[in-house]
């Protein structure tokens, strides 16, 4: 298991500190109930940022704001400014936006189609390939990057639902990276998987972070410590503290953060 040691490499670190996603005064309401209060944070470029906090504190809600999946929920209202590469997401077209951002869900949700068709679906609707050969190449590459190619290369036409849980989740990751997104959002991707599958996905995340900006919501602090470069601690809809992972876990600035990390709350 590799630890992200990249911040010791100074020139690369300077390049990577550029903010990819920036949130300012984001408030989210479900009907009359407010779920997020004045959230402000920055997600740096090509690094893994973990959102941690007790359940129901708004981490998944914030994640869904980034690719505007909250629009799908009836009665949900998002206020404030959330920019990606300087552009406010509220002004962008959601369909185009979601093609630039990949999302992996808590429970693997492959389509009841073949493995090939699952990965090729996004490619086809956004017309990223001109012909069958190009699609094949994209599918192969995505499966390879997701670490699934060797296992399924011989049975691409089999149903995706026949794969194991861990394989299905990697398929969902392959499906997302087939669109060559800039950002990958992961909402507790390992919570329904066994430890070995979890380990494989965490390795995958480390590899992917070299090319993609990753935001991961996780319940497990150990996972956050293992996998991320930056961590943001949420509590009851507010950002309590955000900073470099090692700093948060060894010398947290806020009392609440310390209480959560040592297990007294959440």
């Amino acid at each position: 298991m590799t630890t992200p040691d990249k911040h010791t490499d100074k020139p690369a670190a300077a390049k990577r500190q550029r903010a990819k996603i920036r949130a300012r005064a984001v408030n989210v309401y479900y009907g009359d109930k407010q779920a997020l209060f004045q959230v402000a944070l920055e997600v740096p470029h090509k690094q893994v940022t973990a959102l941690i906090g007790p359940s129901g504190c708004g981490k998944s809600t914030f994640l869904r704001c980034i690719n505007r999946m909250n629009d799908v929920i009836e009665g949900c209202r998002v206020e404030g400014e959330l920019t990606i590469d300087g552009e406010n997401v509220a002004t962008l077209d959601p369909v185009a936006l979601r093609a630039r951002i990949g999302m992996v869900f808590q429970k693997p949700n492959p389509f009841p189609k073949s493995i090939y068709d699952n990965v090729a679906y996004g490619v086809r609707i956004h017309a990223l390939a001109q012909n069958r050969k190009e699609t094949d190449e994209i599918v192969r590459q995505s499966l390879a990057r997701a670490g699934l190619e060797q296992e399924v290369a011989s049975r691409l036409n089999d149903s995706a639902t026949a794969l194991s849980g861990g394989q299905q989740q990697r398929l969902c990751i392959a499906r997302a990276i087939a669109l060559q997104p800039d950002i990958i959002l992961m909402d507790e991707p390992c919570s329904s998987l066994d430890p070995i599958a979890t380990a494989r996905i965490e390795n995958l995340i480390a590899e992917l972070s070299q090319n993609y900006t990753i935001v991961i919501v996780t319940h497990s602090m150990q996972q956050a410590a293992r996998v991320s470069h930056r961590t943001v601690f949420f509590h009851l809809g507010r950002v309590v503290e955000s900073g470099e992972t090692t700093q948060i876990f060894t010398t947290p600035r806020r009392k609440q953060t310390e209480r959560y990390i040592t297990g007294r709350i959440g």
Partner: peptide
């Protein structure tokens, strides 16, 4: 609903989701 969410998160329009997924 999971399947719809997966399709929408990939940037499909609701009608594409309805027709293809």
């Amino acid at each position: 609903q999971d399947l719809r969410n997966a399709s929408l998160a990939l940037g499909a329009t609701p009608s594409e989701t309805a027709a293809k997924v």
